[in-house]
């Protein structure tokens, strides 16, 4: 009986890092987008709104890339 500890450890590490990173990125994205909708009625300064929007879209882009890579893994 040979247990592939290395494979198990890499599954453990990769899953942990990827999950936390993705959830973190996505949350940062939706939270900064939500600030936009909260300040929309008030006096939002154009600069910070644009920054928040760009940041959020960058986060989502990273998540979309990760999902695309996931689909690629399924198909390949």
């Amino acid at each position: 009986m040979k247990i592939d500890w290395a494979a198990l450890a890499s599954v453990f590490g990769v899953s942990l890092v990827v999950t936390v990173a993705l959830v973190g990125l996505f949350t940062v994205g939706i939270v900064s987008l939500s600030k936009l909708s909260a300040t929309a009625g008030g006096s939002a300064s154009g600069g910070s709104a644009a920054l928040a929007r760009t940041g959020a879209y960058a986060c989502f882009a990273a998540c979309v890339a990760a999902v695309a890579y996931g689909i690629y893994l399924i198909v390949a």
Binding site: A7, S10, V11, T19
Partner: peptide
């Protein structure tokens, strides 16, 4: 998200869960 990641990682790193 965790479930999706674990499933994909495990089936492609050679330790299927």
């Amino acid at each position: 998200t965790s479930a999706a990641t674990v499933i994909l990682a495990s089936s492609h790193l050679g330790f299927s869960l």
